[in-house]
Design a protein around this nucleic acid. Structure first.
Lengths: 236, 236
DNA sequence: CGAGGAGTTGAGCACGGTCAAGGATTGTGG
DNA sequence: CCACAATCCTTGACCGTGCTCAACTCCTCG
């Protein structure tokens, strides 16, 4: 049933169409989807929604990188998730009809597609499979959280920071010879909020990571030696 | 629509009936539920399912306390969740039709109700609201995970261990005068796996927690001074 | 009785928090 | 164009926390 491309469907030309939660739906609902559908381009630093905002729909990251962050009472914040293209955000507040518990902010220029709340509910109601796919995205989020909790308990901060660089490099890196390089889309304090340490510690971790010879970091510029190799570095 | 009690429904006499995910369902599905329904009593230490087991259904903790634990390749393990009465477990593997990623083991004598996989699917298919309620449990799990990730990043291990004792005391504590006391249902190494430290550290944390004067710990016996008070302890 | 598991305690050390100072970069207004 | 502020990032010193290794106690079970 999933098509490879479908110009009548609002997601029909999206690179992630075949994994879209809005697909397949009954043909009568395609027009409801189209009605509720909108695209929005965000520049780096721009917010899609704020913590405590009411839900306005279901959001899908089409390109770029979105940070989901929760603010604490004491002024600190934790970066709960980096949402990559193809991922759904805002589904908790949509499904539970409650305010957002995180703020969604673009870390780089991004595009986000929205299905407005009212129409999204309409489509969900008429197509149980959409709810199944939404539940599946919930479970993916649980799996990510579990991985993060396990990593926090079993992996050193240095290793976890390396892993984050690696993951970002996969998505944002550009190859030059045997090197991958990128503009780091996160500040030191974002990275600190992501692994749960202080910004000073992030600096020190970078120093130690560079000592291993894989990464070179200078401000936001990151370079990575990328010789195909299955030898995992034995970082502690 | 939710009844307070319903003797024809297999969950009809359960204390958690009004929050049951299996309620309400169409009357024709009540009999399907009854067919797939079974109760099981577990003694402390007994497992309900193991990591990598295929899913056999949807489980609901009726009483007791169940630990969900994942084993790592290096022989260590992490305690991902304590499931209290009224909570659903095993829903990820049910919804995704995949093997369990955690092992479920009773920490104290417990009772677990199961709706067999085949019948559960039947009921879910015929009653979209069941899927909605399952999604809601998924989101509760996400919320719990987020709280844990935030706590790990912002709260000291000492405070987190205190919080765990407090939570357990709420459910398992018995009052004697101005004290609550309980048999700690977790070993030192379970607690260590729960907060992500070594067992030796748990011992030392107990020493420091006792120094604050609220808790007294001796082996598995825990006593807590419980004078109603809204003054939060200023532990670091 | 011995074996093994659970829990505690100590010594030494690495890591990360805190506070403080200073460097680098960027944008604004004169 | 320069001066200045603001922000981001780095580095150093000091110290508390927790990891590792090791020894020892207590208890249960065979």
């Amino acid at each position: 049933m999933p098509d490879q491309s479908n110009s009548s469907h609002p997601c029909g030309n999206c690179a992630f169409y075949r994994d879209s939660i809005w697909q397949p739906v009954s043909s009568s609902c395609v027009s409801v989807l189209s009605r509720g559908f909108s695209r929005r381009d965000l520049i780096a630093g721009q917010s899609l929604y704020y913590q405590d905002d009411d839900n306005r729909g279901v959001f899908c990251v089409s390109k770029g990188l979105i940070a989901l962050r929760t603010q604490h009472h004491d002024g600190t914040s934790t970066l709960m998730r980096l949402a990559y293209p193809g991922e759904i955000i805002g589904f908790r507040s949509f499904l539970e009809s409650r305010p957002h518990r995180t703020e969604a902010r673009a870390l780089v220029g991004s595009r986000v597609c929205t299905v407005a709340q009212r129409d999204a509910r309409h489509v969900v109601q008429g197509n149980p499979s959409v709810l199944t796919r939404l539940a599946s995205r919930c479970i993916k989020e649980i799996d990510r959280n579990h991985e993060r909790i396990i990593a926090a308990a079993t992996t050193s901060n240095k290793q976890r920071l390396s892993d984050i660089l690696l993951r970002l490099m996969e998505t944002h890196g550009e190859r030059t010879g045997q090197f991958l390089h990128m503009q780091l889309p996160l500040s030191r304090s974002d990275l600190a909020d992501l692994i749960g340490v202080q910004t000073e510690t992030v600096s020190r971790l970078f120093t130690r990571i560079q000592a291993d010879g894989i990464f070179r970091v200078s401000g936001r510029e990151v370079q990575m030696l990328s010789v195909p190799s299955n030898k995992k570095s034995a970082n502690m």
